[in-house]
Design a protein around this nucleic acid. Structure first.
Lengths: 339, 339
DNA sequence: CTGAAAGCGCTTACAG
DNA sequence: CTGAAAGCGCTTACAG
């Protein structure tokens, strides 16, 4: 074992063949004699040889690598990443591995310049975008990517005029499920916590599915009972305190995310009220914590493993100039004890 | 915007200088005239030029990339990754970014061959290893890395004869803290749940610190009250059910990890007992869920953000042939409501 | 089935 | 301060 790594020339030398043949053999080219192949593989193994990816990527002009850019909300706690994205990351990693792709991971702050140069610098063949903060700001950034001809797919947010470039959960449908459930339970004095505006299209869709369904039943959610919040436990807690201080006649809260719901439950308990007896709480995401809260959270599950696979599949289809498959994921209501 | 990406030759052409000068300018070489530099940067920006990493890595023989290998226990649920590692991943990503390194992430199954070829294939300059399953099996794999001269650092597990290659929490100290706390609270009928053997050196150290401290106070933990478990909620639940069925006089459980503790709490509640009134429960790790359980978990915090920085710093020191700094992290007891 | 050769896009020693 | 040239380690068209 010398200290510097073996190259295909070293193998060629030991095998008594040319370097071209070594290269072909290692890539399992049908052109190469089986005997020769065997010898090459043996020597490669003995020398602990691995193809230099920098050289082969440079030569072939592709990296077999995907970059995952995870955007953090600047307002959220430095150390805490939305667990939903974390579990998404897990499933994306797995999906990439299954397809023989490597995964570069990068956390981006929303407020600084995106380090979206992975593709430009040939480190990655394409990007997966997770999380986006304010949707309006986000669109401008996406436009740049589009203009640079960067291959990407994003989770959640629609790409203006290019709907095939994003994968999302059917948030509207999720909101409908929540409303139907609450109506069936006769919990119809509803509040909504989260940003119900175009700045947060996912939350907005959840809200709209929710509201439209209530309307269908001749019900509504009073504007005073819609409190803005970002997707953190802290923000949900504060919003709920505000809501409760209004003393509105409420018996159900639909939180735009589980993190918000967890904060809501905390605020409700602190106010001396009980969940779900006094107020039902329903979240969205079904993050791992959801089954451990007290009471366990009723929420809308978005399957991260399916989502991860869809994202990777979409990007890979783009790389092969194939049309992307399905882009929407059906969520399912998971009934536990908080509602 | 042509479809193929610009190269340094394109910039050279537009700037009316040689390609060598472009390369120097882009790397901010002091040799280059400021005027020239400015022109080069302008054109580079206009062409959306980014240095081709494959080419520059090939040339310089380094990748400025670190690979993170996360080993999953084959027995653990496919979709669920230990949240402790997930938050570690977050902090490692951040630490890498701060140092100007990219991060490749890969999940490895314990039972299959390690894809530890990132370094051999020049994709990464070094490896960070997280999680390891059975320590005895693990050592053999580490020996291979060592033999191949791969640069790596691992979390938790000691590397035989090379202690400077791992970063870990002072698990023994953590165990001591737990025992002192329980003794002060007069909760001395203790059980331990987790693998208290050399197969799980971290759990074993926690146990030993715990036990030695009890001994110091003239107390002990009965061998029948040590139940094996791996680090999952399910395993903790089952182990605790077994423990309770033994009808031993117990008023405290030290769980080797938070996940185990969460399972333990569930089993205790199911048996109609209360935490902490009947049985105190203390975990280890302080994963994000810990503050959301009911009752909120008293546990031993290992700072993932510090740990992530230490891992990256250690590896970077190795890459520069500098001696690694400190390798141990002091944990702190976080008292909440479960004990 | 195999080999000699070109070339991917950089960085940097060498020469000026 | 700048340029011409070599070379990092591969892959693959071309020629046999």
């Amino acid at each position: 074992m010398s200290k510097s790594k073996a190259t295909s020339f070293d193998i060629a030398h030991y095998a008594g063949v040319s370097q071209s043949t070594v290269s072909r053999a290692l890539r399992n080219s049908p052109l190469v004699n089986e005997e020769t192949k065997k010898k090459v593989f043996e020597i490669a193994k003995k020398l602990n040889y691995k193809v230099d990816k920098n050289a082969s990527n440079l030569r072939t002009q592709q990296s077999n690598t995907i970059a995952l850019l995870l955007f953090e909300d600047p307002t959220s706690d430095e150390s805490m990443i939305n667990p939903f994205f974390l579990s998404m990351l897990g499933s994306i990693t797995r999906a990439c591995a299954n397809q023989g792709y490597d995964l570069l991971v990068s956390f981006q702050q929303m407020d600084q310049d995106w380090q979206a140069q992975y593709e430009d610098s040939h480190r990655a063949d394409g990007l997966i975008l997770l999380g986006y903060g304010d949707y309006i700001d986000y669109q401008a950034r996406l436009a740049t990517l589009l203009q640079n001809n960067t291959k990407f797919v994003c989770w959640g947010a629609r790409v203006e005029s290019r709907p095939e470039l994003s994968i999302s959960c059917d948030n509207y449908f999720g909101g409908e499920q929540v409303a139907e459930f609450l109506v069936a339970k006769k919990r119809t004095q509803c509040a909504f916590i989260g940003d119900a505006s175009e700045h947060s299209p996912e939350f907005f869709a959840r809200f709209n599915g929710f509201k439209d369904t209530l309307n269908k039943h001749g019900l509504d959610v009073d504007a005073r009972q819609i409190i803005n919040a970002i997707s953190t436990d802290e923000s949900g807690y504060n919003a709920t305190k505000t809501l409760l201080s209004l003393k509105r006649p409420i018996n159900a809260i639909f939180a735009a995310s589980d993190l918000i719901a967890i904060g809501a439950i905390r605020a409700i308990k602190e106010a001396g009220l009980n969940v779900p007896e006094d107020i039902s709480v329903i979240g969205f995401d079904d993050i791992p914590v959801a089954s451990f809260t007290e009471p366990a959270l009723t929420t809308v599950n978005q399957s991260t493993s399916v989502a991860g696979e869809m994202l990777v599949a979409n990007l890979l289809a783009q790389l092969k100039d194939e049309p992307p498959a399905q882009t929407q994921l059906k969520p399912t209501l998971v009934v536990r004890h908080s509602a």
